[in-house]
Design a protein around this nucleic acid. Sequence first.
RNA 1: GGCGCCAUCGUCUAGGGGCCUAGGACGCCGCCCUUUCAAGGCGGAGAUCGCGGGUUCGAAUCCCGCUGGCGCUACCA
Length: 489
Amino acid sequence: MTVRTRYAPSPTGVPHVGNIRTALFSYLLARRLGGQFILRLEDTDRARLVPDSIPKISESLQWLGLDYDEGPDIGGPYGPYTQSERLDQYQAAARRLIEQGDAYDCWCSSERLDAVRAEHQRLKQPPQYDRRCREDAGQAQAKREAEAEGRSPVVRFKTPREGTVTLEDPIHGSTPFDVATIDDFVMLKSDGFPTYHLAYIVDDDAMKITHVIRGDEWIPSAPRHLLIYGALGIEPPVLAHAPRILGPDGAKLSKRHGATSVFEYRDEGYLPEALFNFLGLIGWSLDDKTEIISKAEFIEHFSLERIVRNPAIFNAEKLQWMNGVYIREVIPEPDLVTMFVDRLEADFPPEIPRPIDRQLVAHVVPLIKERVKLLSEVPAYCDFFFTDNLSWSKEELLGKAYAGRPADAKAALGAVATSAVDVTWTHDDIEAALRSLADKLGAKAGDLFSLVRVAVTGKRVTPPLFESMEILGRERCLERLSQAASLVS
RNA sequence: GGCGCCAUCGUCUAGGGGCCUAGGACGCCGCCCUUUCAAGGCGGAGAUCGCGGGUUCGAAUCCCGCUGGCGCUACCA
């Protein structure tokens, strides 16, 4: 039997990093075992539906590199892959369960349900449905009331009053549950839509899903699911409950903790490869030391059994470090050039002419790749290559070394320009020339370099000076030197 | 209230009875390198393995209890 896993989010927004990690695990498992990974939309809650989140979900998956084999947008042999288009199947399953005596119509109003729940709570009893409609008499009465008010029924599962069901989970082992603590939960809502419990089971069965990986908040619901599988005569898939990802304060990861959606990470300049690596190592590890691991290696080694049980706090600093590793060590330079070009095109102010010179970027990449951790830092690091419109201030130019000595600074700048005229324009020769010039001027090399750095780049923090000057070219450097000189006087 | 899950450095984790005076990584601190910023190299601090009982010659590892954190207890997923 071929392994099939799925990611089945409800379209309520852009996927969350915490949530999408279960997709990543599902993807890895499918690829590891040579099966299929599919996307399905669980849009059965019309109240929470956010329509434009649907393309965002597929875009998030694609961006992260979680390519799926079947899905709402690409189809597949078991479609449709959107639950709102499969209503007849859930209704048929519910009908069948009613006919079998495993479910029943419940006509109770939500007002009554609330009252029952409140009463149970007041008496410190478990807040369960009181099963009024489970009995013919109660049901008949409730039905009369409901019809008078024009209400439709829900379908509830007729949970056995006693017994045990046992969840066998590859991550958690086996957990027995006493069925008596489970109430008669709703499977089909009065609007004809199923609840999660019914819908996912019917779909997974129809779509031949073999392994379900979901958050461990589902463990308490698992016995209900086991009961439905049993009543429907379905062999349950492997149910694996992965720990969740928490914010720094131990609370569920949310907006308060900073970036949470996949798009936010993309926009801040994280690389999908790095985020993939990072997420894959939360709750799963290869061994005691592997930190940088490719998708191919993940696929080669992934297993459910090595997923840990405890929840993890999202360590944003480590992700940033890892992103830096990808930029400076993992991504091949030509690919990096493309990423930088795209970033610059998008982020540079409109004054800087487009298109961005790819050749120039290719020269710049080696200089800055080891000093940026995020793509978003790239423009500020190299804008002076792409515009001659520098905006230094006199104070910045003089810096600490030349503060109060503008005349000396001007003289130094002039001398640099003079010696630059006939030096061979390579970074080594430029450096040699400036060092001996510093000597001649009786200045500390570092002080002179700083002055030149600001004059040529407009900033105090830059890529290596001489390499930058080489790339900039003699003419542009001379021009900037003279502009700077006239500014300090 | 009921039911359940979880528990190793601040964080992510390795570990599955002796290899553990607990290893790696991020972060932090110091030194080195150095034209700024990074990167890199070296070193350091940091966990009585939540607590208490067992079992065992021996426990971070197995068992029980407790505590703590979290989750579920919806016509949400």
